Computed example of a mutant assay.
Amino acid sequence: MSQPDNTLRIAMVEDHPVVVEGLRRILAQEMPHAALLEFNTGETFLQHLREAQHLVTLALLDITLPDTNGVELCQKAKNLSPDTCVLGFSNHNDRALIMQMLSSGASGYLLKNVGAPELMQCVREALNGQMAFSDEVKKIIARPSAAHVKAVPPLTKREKQILRMIADGKTSADIAAELLVSPFTIETHRRNLMQKFDVNNAAALIRLAAQLQLI
């Protein structure tokens, strides 16, 4: 369970006054006894973490600040105060950036277009020790990355079959005899596979296929 409101210290690390005002209004209404802290640069937030006698319970962290970016700031903040829960709070909906924030120690990520109910749901989930994402971010994370989509070429059923047989160390003649086709047909499939995976030899083909968990 999360701690009582009167012990919560929530930091808003955001350089747009209108956003801070909106956050303050929502948080003050929903958590009237929580201490709300405002920082418009990353360094002032870090300085507070270095000097404060009381733990910052949760920080809503903008990704683009005048003096730093959210990924670096999250790393530094977690190093200074590992128990502070950090939520990315941004207009940036790039999947790679979201994943970088999570790798840096963030406990979730929200887009700034969230409504008050969704914002508070994410805050409470984070305070309860859960990973917290706005609904739109959940959809972004669920999509495969562009790099992964590009790395996994579409293969026919026969190409997958031949790929597994190549990985088993079988020669083109072996595969041709087993599949009752000509060696030339198998060689054509080999060339097509190497072209699709953008590799120059069978060893590289097998290695990449293994990395992508296709064999």
Rank of each mutant, 00 (worst) to 15 (best):
A59F: 04
Q75F: 02
E21I: 06
R24I: 09
V181F: 07
L46W: 02
Q3E: 11
N93Q: 12
D135A: 13
A176W: 06
V114I: 15
K138Q: 14
S134H: 07
Q211W: 00
P117C: 07
L155Y: 05
D135L: 13
I141A: 00
L36Q: 03
N93L: 06
L55P: 12
L110W: 03
L111A: 05
L65T: 03
M101R: 02
A52K: 10
A77W: 01
Q121R: 15
A34H: 03
L80N: 04
D62G: 08
L49D: 01
R190W: 11
K157D: 10
L155P: 02
M120L: 15
V19Y: 09
R143F: 00
E14Y: 08
I175T: 06
L80W: 00
G22M: 10
L49I: 05
V19C: 11
H189Q: 12
L61F: 02
A34K: 05
A209V: 09
A96N: 14
K160N: 11
M99C: 08
A147E: 14
A106N: 08
T185Y: 13
I206W: 11
L180K: 15
V199K: 02
T57L: 07
V19D: 12
S145W: 03
I141M: 11
L87I: 04
R25L: 12
D15K: 06
V13L: 02
N201Y: 08
Q161K: 15
K78C: 03
D83P: 05
I140S: 03
Q3R: 13
D5V: 15
Q3T: 15
G22D: 08
N40M: 10
F45N: 01
L55S: 12
M1Y: 05
R50P: 01
C74Q: 03
Q29T: 13
V181E: 09
A116L: 10
G129P: 03
R191A: 11
V181I: 15
T7E: 09
F39I: 07
L102K: 02
Q130A: 12
N201D: 14
A204R: 13
V149F: 06
V181A: 04
V123A: 06
S104A: 15
I141H: 01
Q211V: 08
A126I: 02
N128H: 10
M194I: 10
V18R: 14
R191K: 14
A77G: 04
R207W: 00
G88H: 04
G115L: 14
L36A: 02
V123Q: 03
L23C: 09
F184C: 02
K139M: 08
S182A: 13
D94T: 05
G22F: 06
D62K: 09
R24L: 09
L127P: 02
P183A: 10
L55A: 11
V149K: 14
E30T: 14
A96Y: 12
K196E: 09
Y109A: 00
Q53W: 06
G22E: 08
L61P: 01
P66R: 15
R124F: 10
P153R: 06
H92L: 13
S81K: 09
V13C: 01
T171W: 09
A11F: 00
V20G: 05
K138L: 08
G108T: 05
H54G: 06
A209R: 06
